[in-house]
Amino acid sequence: MKEIVAIIRPNKMTRTKEVLAALGFPALTAWKVLGRGKQKGLAGEVSFPLRPDLVQEEGGMRYVPKRLISLVVEDEDVPLVVGAIMKVNRTGAIGDGRVFVCPLEDAVRIRTQERGTVAIL
């Protein structure tokens, strides 16, 4: 099993969920997060007016709003899921996000105490 963690643009969240569900991966966890990459938070990334104290002199922001999603999949499904996330979220512009694939030792469904693959299905 692997955990796939992706940091994406907020406006891509709905489409990402739709595509993953259509591929058979409807279960995920999502958070509203703030962060920035090496571009130091481009102010043009957001579609709302910024308070002056949030904008840095270089035209950047302290942090940019993003969405972080996490889902657990079988090893053989990693290329499909990562490919789908990439296809939906890649605009070719700075700020498209990141995808991380992490090894996962075990999973336990609390209600039934099932372990491993059956716990994530």
Rank of each mutant, 00 (worst) to 15 (best):
V46I: 13
I94S: 13
K32P: 00
R109M: 03
K38H: 06
G92Y: 04
L80H: 03
E45W: 06
R62C: 03
E76N: 14
T117S: 11
G35R: 10
V82Y: 05
F48P: 09
C102W: 03
T112H: 04
F100G: 14
R36A: 08
K40V: 03
P52Q: 13
R109F: 05
G35D: 07
V108T: 08
L50C: 12
E58R: 08
G44P: 00
V33P: 01
V81K: 02
R115K: 12
E45L: 13
E114Q: 13
I85H: 02
R111H: 06
V108Y: 00
A84S: 12
A27P: 00
R62Q: 07
K87Q: 14
V81M: 07
L28Q: 07
R109I: 07
G92T: 02
F100N: 13
E58G: 08
Q39Y: 11
M86I: 15
V73R: 00
A107G: 10
P26F: 05
T91K: 09
S47P: 01
K38M: 05
V33I: 15
I110H: 05
F100H: 12
L104T: 10
V78F: 10
V81Q: 04
R62F: 13
L50H: 09
V33Q: 01
I94V: 15
N89C: 15
E45M: 13
K38W: 08
E57D: 08
V73L: 01
G44C: 00
T112L: 07
G35K: 09
G60I: 08
V101Q: 01
R109W: 04
G35S: 07
G83A: 07
A43P: 01
R90D: 04
K38L: 13
E57Y: 09
G83N: 06
L28W: 02
L34Y: 15
E74P: 00
Q56N: 12
P65M: 12
G44K: 00
E58V: 07
R90F: 11
E114M: 05
N89K: 03
S70N: 08
E57T: 10
G35Q: 12
V55P: 03
R51Y: 14
G116E: 12
V78M: 11
G37A: 14
I69P: 00
E76V: 08
F48Q: 10
I69F: 01
G35L: 08
K32R: 10
G35N: 11
V73E: 01
Y63Q: 15
L34F: 13
L104D: 02
S47Y: 07
F100W: 14
S47F: 06
R67T: 03
V78S: 05
I110W: 08
V64P: 02
D75W: 04
F25E: 05
E76W: 03
I85W: 01
E114F: 02
R98I: 10
V88I: 13
R90Q: 14
D75N: 14
R62T: 11
E114P: 00
L54V: 04
E45K: 13
S70A: 14
T29D: 09
E45G: 08
A107T: 14
G37Y: 07
L34Q: 14
V78N: 04
E45D: 12
V99R: 01
A107E: 04
R111T: 15
K38I: 10
G59S: 13
C102I: 12
F25S: 06
C102Q: 06
R36M: 01
Q39T: 14
V64N: 01
G97S: 12
V81R: 02
A43I: 10
Y63C: 08
I94N: 08
V88W: 06
D75E: 15
G35E: 03
R109L: 05
